[in-house]
Design a protein around this nucleic acid. Sequence first.
DNA 1: CGTCGTTCATGAACGGTGTTCACAAACCAC
DNA 2: GTGGTTTGTGAACACCGTTCATGAACGACG
Lengths: 232, 232
Amino acid sequence: MNDVHLLLGVQLVKAYTGSMGIAERKERQRAELREQILRVARDIVVKEGFPALSMRKLADAVEYAPATLYLHFENREAIAKELCVRGFQELLAMLEPAAQVEDPLERLPKLAEAYVRFGMEHPETYRLIFMEDAKLSTALFGDHPEGPGPRSFGVLVQVFVDLLSAGRLEEGTKPEQLAEVLWAGVHGIVSLRLTCTGFPGTPADELTQVLVTTLVKGLPGLKAGRAQKKVR
Amino acid sequence: MNDVHLLLGVQLVKAYTGSMGIAERKERQRAELREQILRVARDIVVKEGFPALSMRKLADAVEYAPATLYLHFENREAIAKELCVRGFQELLAMLEPAAQVEDPLERLPKLAEAYVRFGMEHPETYRLIFMEDAKLSTALFGDHPEGPGPRSFGVLVQVFVDLLSAGRLEEGTKPEQLAEVLWAGVHGIVSLRLTCTGFPGTPADELTQVLVTTLVKGLPGLKAGRAQKKVR
DNA sequence: CGTCGTTCATGAACGGTGTTCACAAACCAC
DNA sequence: GTGGTTTGTGAACACCGTTCATGAACGACG
């Protein structure tokens, strides 16, 4: 490789790579600007929320004219979509450690806790991914089946697949359905906390525990007794 | 021109109520216009979603100048807030029949089903209430403690209060926590269906059933056995 | 070295948004 | 009819996302 990332070095390379070196540099600079735009955009979203991300403000922040942004992204939504993908990758990364716990029944609460924690620690990112625009989240699952979306969901499914294949769940149980229920549960917790901020409510982590233990063991000490005379 | 806006019976009333009748009429007309604005706004939201509700479009639809809207509402958000309250009242109304089932264990699935059905049948209204802006949903719970928000939540709490007071739940169980978990579950189901439209997913009503039975009875046929040798 | 063609960046504009405000018209009381 | 209050409005302001012709920089080539 070339020693220095200077213009000089590039032209030396060009001496024997032909015009390829200079094209490389231009490509690298292009990618770098694209990356910078995304970095700044992320900052704005995290700090002020997605609705506050305007093309003009973003252009100002990266010190380019607004029109320049359109040389690197088709439109504002394209930027949002990219931020979504990256946010979802962060979420997946947060799930990963929990996903490696061996016993599925230990793994389950850890996954749930990690999921909720991500939502509470990155509220604006979470909002962007799941609550801002249907087109964004839809793209995460519909576009390519091996993106972070389906992969994260797969992690949840795996819990129940493992339980099932170890003979610890009733046969015929559908792991995907249980995973969906779990997902709905944790998403519900995060999502309600993020929108209905005025609600009294149990702290999110405590609520997550209740959710998981209830899903696993059912209502605590439930007596199935038939309806006696009305008590209300 | 003005005979369009004129209401016939009013002048008769004025004949013996003196100047009070005319003030009444004006007040009524004022309220009527306010109501019409809200009606039209609701139509737009239901048909095209809340982001498509612009003051200019709304003004056009009610055949007034945009500035006129500000004589009846402080701003766009005030309109949204009012639509939220009314939407939530609809939701509460949908819960009401289910809420009157006597046996709490029968009531629970019916409530869940009604909640989810509302979300699926009025997606844009549901979005507006719970997913559009934190300030909106927050206001529903924080502003006045006897609005449809807290009341709806109360209906969910009642299920577990009834179970508890009938001695069918372990003592020390907190009904509010269970209600929150249930709420998070159904909200999660609706909310995921509304945003991640591309997701394969079980139909919402079926998923609701799985959620409820799992919350009540726990994982189907779960064997608590300790982790055997890894199967993965 | 100069010229040419491509790439990159931009200012200005278009049509949209929420909101405000000075002004005018309608209306009722006197 | 006159005055005062209510009701309605057009025009403006400051934003927004997006487009497009114009211009500048730059590498390739003669």
